[in-house]
Design a protein around this nucleic acid. Structure first.
Lengths: 76, 76
DNA sequence: CGTGTAAGGAATTCTGACACG
DNA sequence: CGTGTAAGGAATTCTGACACG
């Protein structure tokens, strides 16, 4: 679940979101994918759940900087 | 674990094997990856384990057609 | 038989930017 | 702010084949 194994296209398939949205959440420090040698982002199943959660909270009116404060799910 | 989410390059990283080997095991009906719209193979964590197992058995002297007979792990 | 490789094409992902608001 | 898009490049994956044995 924690293994960063899927590329952004797969995350799009699993979440229904666009690459743009997913990259933006990373830009805002909400998710932290790993990079392959070639530079491609790699995500875990946990990241997929996080992305879904982020998106639903944004729809509820929250902003990315607010989510950054509360999102203490793991690793930081 | 059963979700087919990773591309062949990731499977190579996780198993240490080459794309050629992994595709060959599929050709011999030992693993069954799914295809994305673009035609790229997608594997699950279960597939990764299967690939490792297949490779170790081949090293032990077994042949792919023998593994096909015994490999009743799942789905068939 | 199981695996290596060179070959050319198609699909994927990347970055930085302009846009709207 | 969060997301869309066109742009060009780089990395990934695909298939069919020839090779060795």
């Amino acid at each position: 679940m924690h293994d960063k194994v899927m590329s952004i296209g797969t995350v799009c398939d699993l979440t229904g979101l666009t690459e743009r949205q997913i990259r933006y959440y990373e830009e805002k420090q909400l998710i932290f994918p790993v990079r392959s040698k070639g530079g491609a982002r790699k995500y875990s199943f946990d990241d997929v759940e996080k992305v879904k959660d982020i998106h639903s909270k944004l729809r509820d009116g929250f902003h990315t900087y607010e989510l950054r404060k509360n999102g203490r799910a793991c690793c930081e």
